[in-house]
Write a protein that binds this DNA or RNA. Structure first.
Lengths: 145, 145
DNA sequence: ACCTCAGTTGCGAATTGTTCGCAGCTGGTG
DNA sequence: CACCAGCTGCGAACAATTCGCAACTGAGGT
């Protein structure tokens, strides 16, 4: 799923798009590159403070917006209030959220992608984006009945 | 898509669940019954004020929560910040949001429902809920090139 | 190495959407 | 018709995100 997670690749992606490389941005890229989950802005802020104790949450938000607009990170709004972020460095995928633990599982399904386009077309629209989230509990777990 | 939209049916649904029927709640039910779109809490508040000029936005939120928990209305979080509400009085459907106008089109697709279950199963989960939103622009409109 | 300045940052305050605390009110039951 | 659990209005509290502004800093040119 991950094509290239090196910080240098992210920095290069920024340079190529004319995004100035500051210490804060490099630190955020580093955190994003390491992240195995889908951290929120405050999660990221907390992690980045290890390297940049005085970095502001606003800067984290601003940087994430810049990276989002550049197509380098993806922003997700799962269920509740806050946004979650992940690198957009692999092929498209959707998410299944464990309703009990909040754990997020990534998956792809070409069939469902195709269907979404077909549905939009059927309704007279050209698909420009979509959001598919599945919520579930681990099969065979205690809460079955 | 709509099975029964009469205010009396909603009131009865409340009574049968032990939800006390106040003037405010009846007015909110009335607004929801009439709504052809997917109004936000403030939309609903604004409409309800016609009948109850002193109703508080907090009451609207509280009532919507009560109705949501009772399974009488559904709460959606499309793209941006605020929640949108609709009666849960028909069969399940998903939404396509016009990326330009914000207009919401409802649709159902048994195939996609089936696929979602299949995917969850494949990942070792039992599907308990899902969210599918398509974003698109009207095909053949100006912004094609 | 140094200058320059547009772009970036930190701070705290503003915004937006939603919820809470509490004193007063009210539906529906006896 | 009285009672009281549950409901309401109000304004304040909250949470996530954005903004305004003065100070700072990368990276290109010299």
């Amino acid at each position: 799923m991950v094509v290239d997670r090196s910080v240098e690749a992210l920095n290069e992606a920024c340079r190529s798009r004319g995004i100035r490389l500051t210490g804060q941005r490099k630190a955020i890229s580093e955190v994003m590159a390491r992240a195995q989950d889908h951290p929120s802005a405050t999660d990221i802020h907390e992690l980045v403070t290890r390297k940049h104790p005085r970095i502001s949450l606003a800067t984290v938000y601003r940087t994430l917006s810049v990276l989002r607009d550049a197509g380098i990170v993806e922003e997700h709004r799962f269920g509740e209030g806050r946004c979650h972020y992940e690198l957009a460095d692999g092929p498209h995928h959707d998410h299944l959220i464990d309703a009990e633990t909040g754990q997020i599982v990534e998956f792809t399904d070409p069939e469902i992608e195709r269907l979404q386009h077909a549905i939009a077309e059927r309704l007279g629209y050209r698909l420009t984006g979509h959001k598919l989230e599945l919520y579930g509990v681990r099969a065979g777990d205690a809460d079955q009945g």
